[in-house]
Design a protein around this nucleic acid. Structure first.
Lengths: 205, 205
DNA sequence: CGCTAATCTGGAACAAGTTTCAGACTGGTG
DNA sequence: CACCAGTCTGAAACTTGTTCCAGATTAGCG
């Protein structure tokens, strides 16, 4: 039983080099179009053309626009995680480090609001058909937050706190992107939700 | 200056009786279709037909599918608020009352997950073009939460807490709807985020 | 090399949101 | 009543995500 699970989860046979290159070209093309005009500017025909693949091929690699943009977000998050490993947050308490981490991610997104729009809207609009891919992004985000907290084996309560932080993170981004919340307010929301972590330095209690 | 603001905000001339009836029929038709199959089942042509109006008329009343579904959510929230006025939450402390209120709303949504799907996905997918309408929903939600807290004049910090609660609320619904979070987890998230309110009974401190 | 299965291409076709428009209808006004 | 402006209808057209397919290309294999 358990033996098949890992295989079932990744049904993809390992891509050849050309295929890996195609996948990268597609993601890069999507990112470039997203930078121009956000979610709506990422048009599947244009992505295919810019990546130099046929439309049918694009859909073989990413079964929907949502899948494509969620994969793009996963890509960017992996970059972020690498950057965070090189330069971890420096605060004394867990709450401060998580807030610093999220604010750093937020600043990265601010550099390209259109790109952020495409990725975040795709993430929250995704339906059950893309839930596996969204789940992958969520796991990555959880890891990033737990890294910042310095927790290897979180309790149930801590996991719920992390989920609430992620909820706030996603939804605050959405309200920022749609112009209903300012950058400063998003910052305040992040600080506020990190208050759930508790002010005590890691290792105490 | 200030005198025109109220008028500008509601540019709609007061609808005639027939027009009000049309609007209602449209909303009801949208709700019925949403109950069948969620966001994707609400097809503008079908809404128009079920409501007995031409497609162009539908678009005159609601300039996009998103606007339509967000308006539907506002409608439902007004119902909820009326129900809450009749039977307010009974807890001793503010956090408990807010949690109770949100859990009640959540149970209402569970009665029709498809309808919830249509409304909540529309709400979080809305772009700047519908931000005024989304903002109206947000104001209503804020009022409902502040009612439960028993706060008439919240401070900056309290408003940020309310925003975080709303963020968690929306995002937790999304993860529940896409099957990535269980009902129990959503409940725990709501309890957790309400912890930000502080355990003290209203009136103390 | 030659074979076979899988993949990729180009392009048509389909689905659903949105726009447009000419003509019919309605409500208020002189 | 006659008229005007605004509204509604019915239908076609346009856009963009998605599907489908026949033929060309590629990859792995004997």
């Amino acid at each position: 039983m358990g033996r098949m699970t890992a295989e079932a989860r990744r049904a993809e046979p390992p891509l050849t080099e050309r295929q890996e290159a195609r996948r990268r070209r597609i993601l890069r093309a999507a990112a470039q179009l997203a930078c121009r005009g956000g979610f709506e500017a990422v048009q599947m025909r244009e992505v295919a053309e810019a990546a130099g693949v046929a439309l049918g091929t694009l859909y073989r690699y990413f079964p929907s626009k949502i899948h494509l943009l969620v994969a793009l977000m996963e890509d960017q998050l992996q970059d972020l995680r690498r950057a965070l490993r090189r330069h971890p947050p420096t605060g004394d308490d867990a709450a401060g480090r998580v807030a610093e981490t999220l604010m750093r991610a937020f600043r990265a997104l601010q550099r390209d609001p259109h790109l952020a729009d495409a990725m975040v809207r795709a993430l929250t609009f995704a339906d059950r058909g893309a839930s596996a891919e969204v789940e992958a992004v969520s796991r990555l985000t959880t890891k990033i937050v737990l890294d910042a907290m310095g927790l290897a084996e979180p309790t149930q309560e801590q996991l719920s706190v992390v989920r609430v932080i992620e909820h706030t993170w996603h939804s605050a981004l959405i309200t920022w992107l749609s112009g209903r919340e300012s950058i400063a307010q998003v910052g305040r929301d992040i600080e506020t939700v990190c208050g759930l972590i508790g002010p005590r330095p890691a290792g105490t209690g």
